[in-house]
Design a protein around this nucleic acid. Structure first.
Lengths: 228, 228
DNA sequence: TTGCGCTTTACACAACCTTTACACCGTTCT
DNA sequence: AGAACGGTGTAAAGGTTGTGTAAAGCGCAA
């Protein structure tokens, strides 16, 4: 389970406290002290969940949430002043996934974050359009792009299909005939070298010349080396 | 979120299998074995989404869909024979919300149903007349105008529709056939270059010649690349 | 009619899938 | 061991398809 957090909180002391605690709990934390920075960090850096204070010096947290929601379904947890029902209700309407009253108990925060991440992971496991991560690679089906360390790879349509199939079966061997059928949509003819060419081009674009990411299994097919 | 399903499927075994699985996933399922029963159940009982087989013993599923559409906007998912492009296209025209090839994976079915219900809930919560912001662009549906850095763009009616659709799906690839349907309101014919022309004109009006705002995804369609 | 905007036509071009060719390598056969 | 064979890597050429856009055509409203 991924667990990269974007923490948007203007109170220096509280932010550092939370950041330290969350890091200790195995999260990767990226920090922003105001709404503007938060939005641009969310746009630039891929993260899995946002912890968002409502009271911010520049843009109101709810406005930040609204702008995030205009583009993504990134889960967002709001930090609200205790007892402020209004913010809570507006926050849910705009699409917050949870809220936590301030001052908050770090352990409770972690518990809620993990609950949300669990739920999201479940949703994604059953969603064909959900983005999928494989080590440093990330497949974004709606964008029809594959990212390597958050940099989009410049792939053709066919290369995207081939790589996406290999990643979907990461660690195991995909037979050439199957790969052909699934990615190119036709049977593998006897002297057809098309697939080999796509693999060759993919290897070049993926880099890592020393140890090729796509392994050849002679007589069978190819396999994307998985970390597992 | 509501989740009452009307399942119209004549194959007794498949219907019971799906009904059991959907019930287990928290849906309330009402079953019909043919088109006539399906239509009357839809009329009598309020439900949130319809799963509709195309091959039915009495009325063709597409005809059922047409009759449903004559009265409501109830979301409908079609079960189509795998690979039958014709049904898919006709179904899309008549107003199906999604189609699933048969035999279908129940988990995928559930995922798609939930995606549609989420979208419908989202649509209902979203005011279609509300202005929307995407970076330096702002869509004003009431005025039917789009502003760039608060300067109105001089767009024709069709150009407005095309750009508005692209922005509504910012960051993801919009297929040419879909863009044609949604913005121009008709099917994309085989040698129809109309859409390309509108895109070309839009690019000129949007400026930014160095890095075009509207990206071509060869063989698929176009994508307005957003900050995400 | 003119003017405007949508559509079609036409052509050039770029993208990219496929084929060809040859070098290389592991395996098997003699 | 050496030869023969078939699978693989990849550069380069070939050919097809999709796309960009200028320009002409068309339909409609003023």
């Amino acid at each position: 389970m991924q667990n990269r957090i974007l923490l948007v909180e203007d109170d220096e002391e509280l932010r550092q406290l939370l950041a330290r605690y969350l890091t200790g709990q195995g999260f990767t934390v990226r920090e922003a002290a105001n709404g503007r920075d938060g939005l641009s960090l969310a746009a630039e850096n891929h993260c899995d969940i946002v912890v968002l204070d409502i009271m911010l010096p520049d843009i109101n947290g709810l406005e930040v949430l609204r702008q995030l929601r205009a583009q993504t379904h990134l889960p967002v947890v709001l930090l609200t002043a205790r007892g402020d029902e209004t913010d809570r209700i507006v926050g849910f309407e705009v699409g917050a996934d949870d809220y936590i009253p301030k001052p908050c108990n770090p352990r409770e925060l972690v518990a809620r974050l993990q609950a949300i991440l669990r739920r999201v992971a479940w949703d994604q496991a059953t969603d064909v359009d959900a983005s999928r991560e494989y080590g440093d690679l990330r497949v974004e089906p709606v964008q029809r792009r594959i990212f390597q360390n958050d940099e989009p790879l410049d792939l053709t349509a066919t290369e995207y299909e081939v790589l996406q199939v290999l990643l979907a079966h990461i660690g195991s061997v995909v037979r050439k005939t199957d790969l052909m059928q699934w990615a190119l949509g036709r049977r593998l003819a006897s002297h057809d070298r098309t697939l080999d060419m796509h693999i060759s081009n993919l290897r070049r674009k993926l880099g890592g010349d020393d140890s090729p990411r796509i392994e050849t299994v002679r007589g069978l097919g190819y396999s994307f080396r998985g970390g597992v």
